[in-house]
């Protein structure tokens, strides 16, 4: 299937010499939820702004549903909705005014019923005649979303949608994104909350220092890079690790009552069964054990501190 969004050789250098993006290639499939993950200043917003026409790329081509975002900008942009990261709103206008304006600006005929539905869905209907300056931060962010949805985009960019919002809105936002996906809308969100990507995304791209260091299905990524941990609750605390267990990377915690073994799930031999065998040989009894898969956050922190080549090698392993 042809990608709904295709980015080829995209780079962006600012006049001051800062290279915000270094040759990014990316394809997004229709209807997927793609999370772009990266620390502050990694180039997430630059990438989005280049697609949406807010900055001019230095090199590269971008197409949305096959339309070149520069040559066929009308067709391309009318498909794209953007919820910016910053609170860019006109505080003197009402919720209703800015939302209907956005729809018209994108060339669509008025449709009050549709706007009403969006405002109701976003719990903004009661506030429709209020000026934006009277709204709380969370409500303002909902207005930004309503504006983007008002022109029925097929590709929706959410730039840090949940930065600084309360738990309730975050949950609402996640539900909203899923419903949009069910409708066939492609959603690309940037975040530095790993749990968000973990919760929402079909695929994850990790960007650091202007480079897309990896793009991977979320589950594959977690499997590939996942470290697993087995923890034993010991019957009798150990003072120190016995010499006989030197072959495993073990840690003693909780004053010697907890023994943790971290291993790589992709390795040919995990060493778990041999460890347990050895423990029983040494007569180390345990009351309980639990296992834990490392979260995307741990994977992510590991990645952004790893050079690209190494990260790629790690993935192939």
């Amino acid at each position: 299937m042809k990608p709904v969004l295709s980015i080829r050789g995209l780079s962006k250098s600012y006049k001051g010499g800062l290279q915000a993006l270094k040759t990014v290639d990316l394809d997004i499939a229709k209807g997927e939820i793609f999370a772009l993950l990266g620390p502050n200043g990694a180039g997430k917003t630059t990438l989005i702004n280049a697609v949406c026409g807010i900055i001019t790329p230095t090199t590269g081509e971008i197409t949305a549903a096959g339309y070149d975002t520069r040559k066929d900008y009308r067709a391309a942009r009318s498909l794209i909705g953007l919820v910016p990261q910053e609170m860019h709103i006109d505080i003197f206008e009402t919720v209703w005014a800015v939302t209907t304006y956005s729809r018209g600006l994108f060339g669509l005929p008025p449709n009050p019923a549709y706007i009403e539905q969006i405002l109701r869905d976003l719990s903004l209907w009661e506030k429709k005649d209020e000026k934006l300056q009277a709204l709380s931060g969370g409500m303002k962010r909902r207005v930004l979303i309503a504006k983007a949805l008002s022109h029925e985009p097929q590709i929706l960019f959410l730039d840090e949608p949940t930065a600084g919002v309360d738990v309730e809105l975050r949950r609402d936002m996640w539900n909203l994104v899923r419903k949009l996906r069910d409708r066939g809308v492609t959603v690309i969100l940037t975040t530095h909350y790993i749990e968000e990507a973990e919760e929402m995304a079909d695929r994850v791209g990790v960007i650091a220092k202007g480079e897309l260091i990896l793009v991977e299905d979320k589950s594959t990524l977690m499997k590939k890079l996942g470290k697993k941990q087995v923890a034993f609750e010991l019957a009798d605390p150990l003072k120190a690790l016995p010499d006989g267990l030197g072959d495993w990377s073990l840690e003693l915690k909780n004053d010697g009552s907890r023994l943790e073994y971290t291993f790589d799930t992709t390795a040919e031999r995990t060493g778990v069964s041999s460890l347990i065998r050895r423990m029983s040989e040494l007569n180390i009894q345990f009351k309980d054990l639990d296992t834990r898969t490392s979260s995307l956050e741990e994977i992510f922190v590991g990645l952004v501190h790893t050079p690209k080549a190494e990260a790629a090698a790690q993935l192939k392993a």
Binding site: G53, I54, Y73, A76, R77, H88, I89, L105, F106, G107
Partner: peptide
């Protein structure tokens, strides 16, 4: 105010 983003991203 920053709302220029919308104008620049509009068709």
């Amino acid at each position: 105010t920053g709302t220029i983003y919308e104008l620049l991203s509009a068709p």
